[in-house]
Write a protein that binds this DNA or RNA. Structure first.
Length: 301
DNA sequence: TCACGTCAAGCAGAT
DNA sequence: ATCTGCTTGACGTGA
């Protein structure tokens, strides 16, 4: 069991997902920004290793306009050494990596151009993880997509599109249950047709489910991850008090988190804490996870 | 220095 | 019809 937080660290004086407007695009600006982002990524990973936070989500913004036609710069080659350097840090410390392409990436859209752009963006994500020389346990997590007034057809479209993807993307892609459209059950249906691993978002599951217990979905989703995929990835968040349903909380509630660890006892997985204060909550959670036998097993390896 | 309109991209529920 | 959230505010013009 490893623990982590997504994309950003507020404790260190370094922003790893800087970007800029399309209007101010220049190759110089691009190189500067990527340089900064990669330096910050390394700093965040170093911080994480020091604090035993060995699961990290790399921001999709690390390479601005990565799949946009305006970007014809060969950043893959230009930053090859830096990628290798960070990759070494990742592999030496056995850091688990994930990425989460944003909401514009929709594989099951009926619009051809949306799908094409989505595939290009997924290609960028896969390339980046390849350049960092991450093994196949580093994953790209995606939601199933839209409903388009016909859920069955839309599920089917996802399956077909997934099966047509190049292997470089397929080996890293996993699907995540969301809070309004596709539940764990729907993801299982896709798994049966594609063998794509399912990342369990426990907060989303609490908002959209078919009355399955947490234990049941932990069991079902765990089984979709094979040795080459690593252990199940879990996204963990809590409802923000007072805000609308689905809003992520600012800070971890220790008692709720303890309860989750207790309920999930029979299963091993890596936890991504989607909590707004990032590493602060992750460090608090770590104090709890450290006492867990699943975590002990990992550190004694 | 700061306020605030806007930002590559999709979708659906809420208002 | 328009706004908001998503994983999340940051960019950048204008005063």
């Amino acid at each position: 069991m490893k623990l982590g937080y997504p994309c950003k660290n507020w404790s260190i004086d370094c922003i790893g997902d800087k970007t800029f407007r399309l209007k101010s695009y220049s190759e110089h600006r691009l190189i500067d920004t990527i340089q900064n982002n990669l330096e910050c990524l390394k700093e965040m990973l170093t911080f994480n290793v020091k604090h035993h936070l060995l699961f990290f989500r790399i921001s999709s913004d690390i390479i601005p306009f990565a799949s946009h036609p305006i970007n014809t710069f060969d950043w893959r080659d230009y930053f090859l050494d830096t990628f290798e350097d960070i990759g070494t840090l990742i592999s030496l410390n056995n850091i688990r990596i994930s990425m989460h392409p944003d909401q514009f990436i929709v594989l099951n859209s009926p619009k051809h151009d949306v799908v094409q752009r989505s595939i290009e963006e997924l290609r960028y994500h896969a390339d980046l993880l390849d350049l960092l020389q991450c093994d196949s346990t580093a994953k790209i997590q995606l939601h199933v997509g839209g409903i388009y007034n016909d859920k069955q057809k839309s599920l089917q479209r996802f399956i077909e599109r997934y099966n047509d993807l190049p292997n470089s993307i397929r080996k890293r892609l996993v699907i995540e249950n969301d809070d309004t459209r596709y539940s764990v059950n729907n993801c299982i249906h896709i798994f049966k047709e594609t063998k794509i691993p399912i990342l369990l978002d426990v907060f989303h599951h609490s908002l959209l489910n078919n009355n399955e217990s947490l234990e049941k979905v932990l069991m079902e989703t765990s089984r979709t991850w094979h040795k080459k995929d690593g252990v199940l990835m879990v996204d963990y968040s809590e409802q923000a008090p007072g805000l609308r349903k689905g809003s992520h909380t600012k800070s971890l509630t220790v008692s709720k988190f303890k309860k989750f660890l207790e309920l999930s006892k029979p299963y091993d997985f890596d936890i991504m804490l989607e909590i707004k204060d990032k590493e602060q909550s992750a460090l608090r959670a770590l104090n709890i996870v450290k006492k867990d036998t699943r975590f002990q097993q990992f550190t004694s390896e």
